[in-house]
Amino acid sequence: MQLPLFPEAASSLAKNVDYLYYYLTAVTIVMTGLIFAAVFFFAIKYRRRSEDETPRPIHGSLVLEIGWSVVPFLVMLTFFWWGAQIFFENASPPPNAMDVYVVGKQWMWKIQYPQGQREINELHVPVGRPVKLTLASEDVIHSFFIPAFRIKHDVVPGRYDTMWFTATKPGRYHLFCAEYCGTEHSGMIGWVTVMNDSDYENWLSGGGSEGTMAQQGEKLFGQLGCSTCHLLDQQGRCPIMRGVYGSRVQLNDGRTVLADDAYIRESILNPNAKIVAGYHSDVMPTFQGQISEEQLLQLIVYVKSLAITGTPTAPPLGSAGQTQGAKQ
């Protein structure tokens, strides 16, 4: 008979969350204990001894009222502060985090690695290295939840969300969908395998017959006809691709935007949303509904690979580790 009372702690974050949880639990036990004790004590000590008892009224005490408002609030502020600290520290991935791409769809997790491996409901990561997940949904809202890492993030259709972790203990851990998503919600589960560095390198070299994600993206770039107008190095009907990713792009309405994942995504699905200065709208057709979320990610990784060397990864994304696909 298995009766676990506490989940495994297998990420750099897990222990911190647990300590805060112990603290909250301790305060809860003390407070509940005090209230229970007072209620029991009063109930016994002041139990009705005769039907005609009429105790003298006590109207209240300002000092007590202030005390039991202010002291609990100060304790709650410590919860707030500690919780916010953990939340902020984990909002943005470190710049050296390795990328993995996750697409949720009813009812499976599709995982792609930049090296070209693809898996379903399995995530393989090395121990001790920060991993950044870029999350996309093909249909409804899902939520990527790894209890042993104490992390969870909603996967919202129409945009990219990111989350990150550093696994600290080799092993196999549950992966759950935490946001109700329809019939087989409880079947949208899998395993996270944390491996030693050498095992991980072995595992990585094992698959990926279709080439890296960037190579797959490059192939799509040709097949979909993108390359007819978006030339790599010279002026075409559409903006040049090399060096775009991670740069600041001047738009024809005077704004400047950062060319990140969300920008590239929007430009593919809704080309007229942001027109680069010097180009015209209604030149490019929309690809909404024509390519899958996985293909979109491959295209983005390809465009990312064309970034000017020295900026191989995107700068930290939106504040809560999330980027908006649609214009807000």
């Binding site: 911190n16 919860f79 707030f80 919780g83 939340f87 984990n90 104490r150 992390i151 969870k152």
Partner: peptide
């Protein structure tokens, strides 16, 4: 649940 770091889990 109001405590950010714990609510995520």
């Amino acid at each position: 649940l109001a405590t950010l770091g714990v609510d995520v889990h």
